[in-house]
């Protein structure tokens, strides 16, 4: 046991992508069978933002159709939402897996040719763009591409092709960030 613990502080390699994908597919399938819906992520943040704005400025949130859609009909607390609890679980599961694989680390992930500041600025801008894109598309990579992809949803497949298209189109200009 001492031997294994001494060497185990190096991060473990990621698992084979096909088996990770298979496991992810089974999680998605479980969600279909148990809940009748797929996975998601961005909706939880929308709900959280809408709830926060509603707490700070109730009138503003209620008059805005976007926020109102996430506030529900008032019979339950808006944060008692399926996606909110699911994303809470994503944080927990990600942390658990990272801890078990020795991948917990406060670090900025970036290529060698970019400083921390610009990388973080890019991350912020990317996050903001992603949120806007996800709201236009009614879902993100989890809610649309993954879930809708598995259900052969027309919009999801169009969306997925565009995600890869948009990313590949711009990749060359951003190579300094990653390579």
């Amino acid at each position: 046991m001492t031997d294994s613990t001494d060497t185990s502080h190096a991060p473990r390699p990621h698992v084979n992508p096909y088996w990770a994908g298979f496991a992810l597919g089974l999680v998605l399938l479980t969600s279909f069978v148990v809940m009748g819906r797929g996975l998601g992520a961005s909706g939880a943040f929308s709900t959280a933002v809408a709830t926060t704005v509603h707490a700070v400025a109730p009138a503003h949130a209620e008059s805005n159709a976007f926020y109102a859609g996430y506030l529900g009909d008032g019979t339950t607390h808006p944060m008692k939402d399926w996606l909110v609890f699911e994303v809470l679980g994503v944080f927990v599961g990600g942390f658990l897996s990272g801890a078990l694989a020795n991948r917990l680390k406060f670090v900025v992930e970036k290529g060698p040719r970019i400083a921390n500041g610009p990388r973080l600025a890019f991350a912020f801008v990317g996050g903001a763009l992603m949120a806007i894109g996800a709201k236009f598309a009614l879902g993100c990579t989890s809610g649309q591409a993954l879930t809708g992809g598995a259900l052969l949803n027309v919009g999801s497949w169009a969306f997925m092709m565009c995600v890869f298209g948009g990313a590949y189109a711009l990749a060359w200009f951003l190579r300094r960030q990653w390579l």
């Binding site: 613990t5 185990s8 502080h9 809470l88 927990v92 801890a99 078990l100 020795n102 917990l104």
Partner: peptide
């Protein structure tokens, strides 16, 4: 999140299976 998860994490930490946080 309040009992089972920290219990598990601290148990694993005590066994040096995971890093202490």
């Amino acid at each position: 999140c309040g009992i089972v998860l920290p219990l598990t994490l601290q148990f694993l930490q005590a066994q040096h299976r995971i890093r202490s946080t």
